[in-house]
Write a protein that binds this DNA or RNA. Structure first.
Lengths: 298, 298
DNA sequence: GGTTAGCCATGCATATTTGTATAGCAGATG
DNA sequence: CATCTGCTATACAAATATGCATGGCTAACC
């Protein structure tokens, strides 16, 4: 009869073999030896009653079952990381490790001064910043605090509404000097537009249906928001940019502000399991108020 | 220097001590001995650099830190359980263990025939039914499939919209014979109403603001939906009940159907990590179509 | 107040797990 | 074609974790 509850260590070994591709590499990763890992995998297969790998001289090849089980083991690993971060807290003191996730634009253009100010006030807090445009991190405890453009509905999450961050169409003065300034929406068709490469459902929801803003019209297509912003700054053409962000740069000019205006509703979110972590709570409050100022700044 | 990544087994021991309250009880639970558990806790405290328990002759008293870390360890445990369920799948065959969570009413009054039909068609599938009115189970992998009255927004979840399950006001014929039948909403005030004990945000959203449906008016107050339904059947008075459910019982009479009608939007949800589990997928499909039939049945 | 039942800590023998060393195999390289 | 490098599997010795027995403590109960 297969053991119904394998030692949790076996899952850690399994995950390492999945990520590293071989027993030997996993052994290096975990500071163990290849024979031990081999026995772990054998024991786990016996306990679960399942084949996880087919052995080969090049390494272990995961079976379909192994791929199916991997995300669960990853969830375990994320939980251990979250637990260890939580253990860095100290009651009464604002110290420890806090992990944030945010989009590229926010992480690069908006957060740095906010984090610097927090760090100055709380020099004992270490911040981990996970830059990712994917939104599914928080539930799996891949981060403690997230900045989101979608309303979170899960009860396990503590949320604060930032408001709408406005988006507008911008171009660099240099570009406008040589190409002229469009005075109507239709005139945009004659310009070098900067836009997305692949349209995501989120983007489709964001833009009004009547705008001439489709892939075919773009003279620069990229899904990397930082690259798009850099292209605007470089005078490549006209693209969308967060209004409070562009407001800092006098060289960027907003075009047709009445016609071309979008808004991204924004939230700061934290996992309720981290409510007792004083550093997380304080950074949450700090980010919320700083982002509210940012959203209303122009 | 504290070890940054304790053995995962230590977390399992920690969780057992938290739930059982003492090293000795945890040892019985895990089929180990008290000295081993004691050493595990000591090692974990050393690795995390944190005090987890204060020793006492009555057992171990968790520190605040231990309470803060517990939910993360529970998340790990939930992940192991999900992984083991996933390992019961077999490619090509519809077999294994599937865990469902649903509300009490759905679990007791609606699901049983659906599950029985599925079981008949798929005799190799074992079903675990977790009856709970809380909605936060699926993210933490406490279940594979959930039936929800709130729109799930997480990308990690696979969802299917069932539609609106209608709610109406009902009374037993016996009650109406002796107390008469209310012909206006206002007339309800003279009747024995059955309703909630404590109002939740969900309930507050559900009911229209103009209904005379507040705690003070109720002649039977309970938050247990099954007890409320049983009271309606017993002729205690008038209460809300799912229309397709009441339709099966000729003794129950709907009152003021135009005035008193609510709807609960309903979804079937499953975790994407379980997509490869054939039994989960099939049960998901089965429940979705059966529940759609149910919602539209009256 | 003695007795019982629960708990944790410690010393010591045992059992289990781990690491070391080695053999064998497949593929890349000169 | 010999050589080198990567990998896994196995036998055996060393290290480690476990269980057992015991002692000491508190609280409850007769």
């Amino acid at each position: 009869m297969a053991n119904p509850d394998p030692q949790w260590n076996l899952y850690r070994s399994f995950l390492a073999v999945m990520s590293e591709g071989s027993l030997s590499a996993a052994a290096r990763e975990l500071d163990m030896t290849q024979p031990s890992l081999g026995r772990h995998i054998r024991d786990l297969e016996a306990a679960l009653g399942v084949d996880l790998f087919t052995r080969s001289p090049q390494g272990l090849v995961p079976t379909d079952m192994a791929y199916a089980l991997q995300p669960h083991a990853q969830a375990m690993a994320a939980a251990t990381a979250a637990l260890r971060r939580a253990a860095t807290a100290q009651d009464g003191k604002t110290r420890g490790v806090v992990r944030i996730t945010a989009s590229e634009i926010i992480s690069v253009e908006v957060l740095p001064p906010m984090l610097a100010a927090f760090r100055k006030a709380q020099p004992e807090v270490v911040i981990e910043l996970s830059v990712s445009n994917q939104t599914e991190d928080l539930l799996r405890k891949d981060a403690d605090i997230a900045i989101r453009m979608a309303r979170p509905t899960q009860q396990a999450l503590v949320t604060r509404h930032i408001g709408r961050i406005e988006l507008g169409a911008y171009a660099h003065k240099r570009y406008l000097r040589s190409h002229g300034r469009p005075e109507t929406v239709e005139a945009l068709r004659e310009h070098s537009l900067i836009g997305f490469d692949r349209e995501t459902p989120y983007l489709r929801n964001l833009r009004p249906k009547d705008l001439p803003y489709t892939r075919e019209l773009f003279a620069l297509r990229t899904d990397n928001d930082l690259a798009a912003l850099a292209a605007i700054r470089a005078g490549y053409g006209i693209g969308f940019c967060q209004v409070p962000l562009a407001a800092r740069e006098p060289q960027l000019v907003r075009l047709l502000p009445e016609k071309l205006a979008l808004g991204m509703d924004t939230w700061v979110v934290m996992h309720e399991d981290m409510r007792r972590h004083l550093a997380v709570r304080k950074l949450f409050d700090h980010l919320a108020s700083a982002l509210i100022d940012y959203a209303n700044s122009p």
